[in-house]
Each structure stands twice: as C-alpha cells, then as structure tokens.
C-alpha cells in the first residue's frame, strides 16, 4: 500500500476529535491530532513531513481556527500545506468568507455532514489539488 496520506485534525472537543480520528483512520489515513491553536502550530513546526490535509476547527481556546489560518498564511513552511478545510459548527456566511479569504480550501459545517461525507470531501479537495498542480 502506498504511504498513507497524513491528515492533521485540530479540534478541541474530545467527542468530535475522537469521532474524526476514528473515521479518518478507518478510511485509511494517517492521523495527527491537536486540541488547540497553539498546540497545532507547535506540532506543525516539528511535523515532518507536513500533512497534506488539515481539518481545522474554528472555535477553540487559546488560539482559534481563523487565527491559526492567519499565522499559517504568513509562514513560509505552512503556506505549502495544500488542503486546509475548516470543520466547524459556525454556520455563518461571514465566517465562511473569512476562512476562505485566509486560505481555507473548504468550509464545512459539522452538523451538515456525517463523518463519511467529511472524509469524502477531504478526498475531493486532495484530488482537486492534484489535478490543479499536475496540469
């Protein structure tokens, strides 16, 4: 089997993080976890290789998802993470726009998708990215 695609899940709610960890693993991804913005950035620094996909929650303590996005945008290394998807329960349009403006590829509201669908969306994003870059 090819090396598993690394996905980095940043989520403070243990219920949620557990759930997504399970579904991605079950779907055959390698999973890394962080439970708040600060921890996320710290782990990213040390991570090698960098994850392909990042599932980023917005509402988190210490540093929220949008702030993380911003920090990543200004960081040379982190800019390269291809797919960043926001996975949140904030359903506001402005929030979505803000996130996308800061570099998120997708903005998913948790309650609208079951776990399998979330994984499917992630895969979709990766495929899109590969397609864009190969051509």
């Amino acid at each position: 089997m090819a090396k598993e695609i690394k996905v980095f899940i940043v989520e403070d709610d243990s219920l949620m993080s557990d759930m997504y960890k399970n579904i991605f693993e079950l779907s055959g991804y390698e999973v890394e976890m962080a439970s708040d913005g600060i921890e996320a950035l710290e782990k990213l620094e040390k991570m090698d290789p960098l994850p392909v996909v990042m599932m980023l929650d917005i509402m988190m303590p210490k540093l929220n998802g949008l702030e993380v996005l911003e920090k990543m945008k200004n960081n040379e290394k982190f800019k390269k993470i291809p797919v960043v998807i926001c996975l949140t329960n904030l359903a506001g349009k402005e929030d979505a726009e803000k996130a996308l403006a800061l570099g998120a590829v997708k903005y998913l509201v948790k309650s609208e998708y079951n776990p399998k669908e979330v994984v499917a969306k992630a895969k979709e994003a990766i495929d899109e990215y590969l397609e864009k870059n190969s051509s």
């Binding site: 949620m16 759930m19 997504y20 904030l90 359903a91 509201v109 948790k110 309650s111 079951n114």
Partner: peptide
C-alpha cells in the same frame, strides 16, 4: 447554543454512522 447542540448531535450521529 446551536454550536453546543450541533456538537453532541453530530457526535451521536457520526459515531452511530461509523
């Protein structure tokens, strides 16, 4: 509140789905 409600609901649904 919506957030709060959605979180457990999603968790219940997600885990059940899985």
């Amino acid at each position: 509140a919506s957030h709060e409600l959605r979180t457990p609901l999603t968790a219940i649904r997600g885990n059940a789905d899985m």
